[in-house]
Design a protein around this nucleic acid. Structure first.
Length: 651
RNA sequence: GGGCGCGUAGCUCAGCUGGAUAGAGCAUUAGCCUUCUAAGCUAAGGGUCGCAGGUUCGAGUCCUGCCGCGCCUACCA
């Protein structure tokens, strides 16, 4: 609601400035530092002062004089040395909120693809992967809340080095057959992704000690690429099993996907061959005749770096042995996302979530059941950590070099910084640090070294901690219900923790911070929502009914109640969800949405403390406070839903 | 060497296109539970916004230089 009012005022002033001064100006709008200054502040007079060579205060006065009546605005005044402060018509604003105005999403144009998670299917997910998935999933929810059509893709590199290394571990180090690995997958003794976590670290260490063993990796990769033999069979077993594990892990956090495009199909359906032809035909890459990259197909550095860059290294796309690099495959995949490749995957359903939604996975042969139309996006967000910026630049440069300028501009690297381990966290995990590492502010997670916090371990730890809180507060409830609530609190805490940092901040992971349920945390916001609901439930317990707000709260009554400054400020804050969402999407920053959720919860906590809703003796006021409570409950619920956080039944 | 990012309270972090007195959480200290459950609320202390210049009515925010830290700069992904 707030942002609609904001836009109206902006438009009114834009017209005013154009008519009066003949100037086209973007009208900046700010939140006044103090609430006593009103709801909006316009520094437009400062902008105009230089151009018009007049003092800002004078211009501001003229504008206020000339503005006349703007719908929804009660008063405007000149303040400071030229600010225009705007005060809303409180009664009208409240009535509009009551009527439910301003909360319908406008339909977007074209499909947006968000690719996230993308974990190598060779070991358990860790906290770094969680950051990726939670950021991606939340951004998807934000886009959908604005009315965009979004397709969620999770790319599976099931034929890469990382999968190969685990296969090497099983086959060469542990001498296991595919049948034996299949048994391990179904064994309840140890989760298969955990087992692979250790095995992957062990294999990496083995390479270090025995570099000649790298020949095993090469052999395995060849077998996988050819799609034949025990090694290839095992690779499929491992990758499929780990993908299932990852889907299960992410589902705990309420993260779902639409389609899983796999590298094996990019290979077998010759996606690369098509892209390769295109790249050669349009001279985006060339065959290097000399130097260190002799015999490779390379993209010139001028394509993806600025002109005159001192570093003239070009990027190898096809190796001298004829195999394609990851970037090459990624270019093909990116082309497919926009429908530019002239090819499509075949698809089969992989699983169905309990809510009925299906996840599809790519496959190389035609299927009887028709799949939804995947790909064909207008805009693509790739949620990938910032360390891969260079490669993402190459992919985009590939599109550009092929002449797909528009698609290149619509390819967004949704980058974020890594999750590292704080020194204290390493101590908690019993990890010994080198003297050098101990002095650093944080230590990088490493799958190869097996150094990291597993996602499921962290979630289990959070649940355990939340459960003991729940049990101590609600000993009367049965254990299953306690657990259900604890899970929701734990997942809320985790999602919020990963979202509260802006994308380019390195998270130095710390158990103490992540396990906190107080202060700026998910549970704090959940608690506010639960409390709001409880007031309304309590009302019914007392034998009263929820009033018919539309009938009982006339505009006049609304205006009377909102004369109370505290009530007005609280309602104003609660009505800014739409504005917060728009800004967060524009900035591409889920953290802004999380922050708003916290502020909203803070406002409600203040409201809760200050107004005893159920004991309010004045009837009109009680109706009004109940409506505020209902409004808060709705806004909190919606905001939490965008963050992918549930509202527990009780806390 | 080059590219990208970061440096704000004791700690962890916000700070939207430059705007009014730089914010939040944690931690510390002092208060508030027979009340719609305190996972909450109130209050206090705590700042050379890395350093130095510049741009202008105005700079934590923009520009330049320096200092420190991190990541990237593979025929790995």
């Amino acid at each position: 609601m707030f942002h609609i009012q904001e836009k109206q005022i902006q438009a009114a002033f834009r017209d005013l400035v154009r008519i009066r001064y003949g100037v086209e100006a973007e009208i900046a709008i700010e939140q006044p530092k103090q609430s006593s200054f009103g709801e909006l502040a316009l520094p437009v007079a400062f902008q105009l002062a230089k151009e018009l060579k007049q003092p800002p205060r004078k211009i501001a006065a003229e504008l206020v004089e000339a503005a006349g009546d703007i719908p929804g605005v009660a008063a405007m005044e000149v303040a400071g040395n030229g600010y225009i402060n705007v005060r809303f018509d409180r009664g009208a604003y409240g009535a509009a909120l009551l009527a439910g105005e301003g909360d319908h999403a406008a339909p977007g144009s074209g499909k947006t693809i968000v690719e996230h998670t993308n974990i190598n299917p060779n070991k358990a997910a860790h906290i770094g992967h969680l950051r990726n998935a939670v950021l991606g999933d939340t951004f998807v929810r934000m886009l959908r809340a604005l009315g965009h059509t979004v397709e969620v893709q999770n790319y599976i590199d099931n034929t890469g080095v990382q999968v190969a290394d685990v296969v090497v571990g099983f086959h060469f180090l542990e001498k296991k057959t595919p049948a034996k690995v299949a048994l391990l997958i179904s064994s309840p003794e140890q989760p298969f992704d955990y087992l692979c976590w250790d095995l992957y670290a062990r294999t990496s260490q083995y390479y270090k000690d025995n570099p000649e063993a790298l020949a095993w990796r090469a052999e395995t990769l060849h077998s996988i690429e050819a799609g034949e033999g025990a090694l290839a069979e095992m690779a499929h077993l491992v990758a499929d099993a780990i993908v299932n594990a990852h889907l299960a892990t992410m589902l705990r956090l309420n993260i779902q996907y639409d389609v899983l495009p796999r590298e094996s199909e990019i290979l077998h359906l010759q996606f690369w061959a098509s892209a390769f032809e295109l790249l050669k035909e349009r001279k985006a890459i060339y065959f290097e005749q000399e130097g260190k990259n002799k015999g490779c197909w390379v993209m010139p550095s001028s394509a993806f770096r600025g002109e005159g860059d001192a570093n003239e290294d070009s990027k190898v796309i096809v190796r001298s042995n004829g195999t394609v690099t990851y970037v090459g495959k990624d270019i093909a995949y990116q082309l497919w996302k926009f429908g530019l490749l002239g090819k499509d995957f075949h698809y089969k359903p992989l699983t169905r979530y309990t809510d009925g939604h299906e996840v599809w996975v790519s496959t190389s042969v035609a299927q009887p059941r028709p799949a939804p139309a995947f790909g064909q996006a207008r805009k693509v967000f790739n949620v990938i950590d910032t360390r891969q910026s260079y490669l993402q630049d190459v992919v985009v440069a590939g599109l550009r070099a092929l002449g797909f300028e528009e698609q290149a501009r619509q390819s967004i690297h949704f980058s974020y910084e890594m999750v590292a381990l704080s020194p204290r966290c390493c101590a908690d995990l019993g990890i010994a640090l080198s003297e050098e590492d101990a002095r650093r502010p944080y230590v990088e997670v490493s799958g190869r070294k097996g150094l990291g916090v597993k996602a499921d371990d962290l979630m289990n730890k959070l649940i355990e901690s939340a459960l003991s809180e729940v049990a101590s507060r609600h000993p009367e409830d049965n254990q299953a219900a306690q657990l259900a609530v604890a899970v929701e609190i734990a997942m809320g805490a985790l999602r919020y923790f990963l979202l509260k940092f802006t994308r380019n901040t390195v998270i130095a992971f710390d158990f103490q911070e992540a396990l906190s349920f107080e202060g700026e945390t998910g549970p704090y916001v959940q608690y506010a929502a639960v409390r709001a609901g409880r007031i309304l439930n309590k009302l019914e317990d007392r034998g009263e009914n929820l009033p018919d707000f539309a009938a009982e709260l006339t505009r006049e009554a609304m205006a009377r109640q909102l004369e109370n400054e505290d009530c007005w400020q609280v309602l104003l804050a609660a009505s800014k969800a739409g504005a917060a969402l728009e800004r967060a999407v524009a900035a591409g920053e889920p953290a802004h949405m999380a922050r708003y959720a916290f502020q909203l919860a803070q406002e409600f906590s203040n409201f809760y403390q200050r107004f005893k809703v159920l004991d309010e003796p004045v009837p009109e006021r009680k109706v009004f406070l109940l409506w505020m409570t209902e409004f808060f409950r709705l806004q909190l619920r919606r905001t939490l839903a965008i963050l992918g956080i549930a509202v527990p039944a009780y806390m």
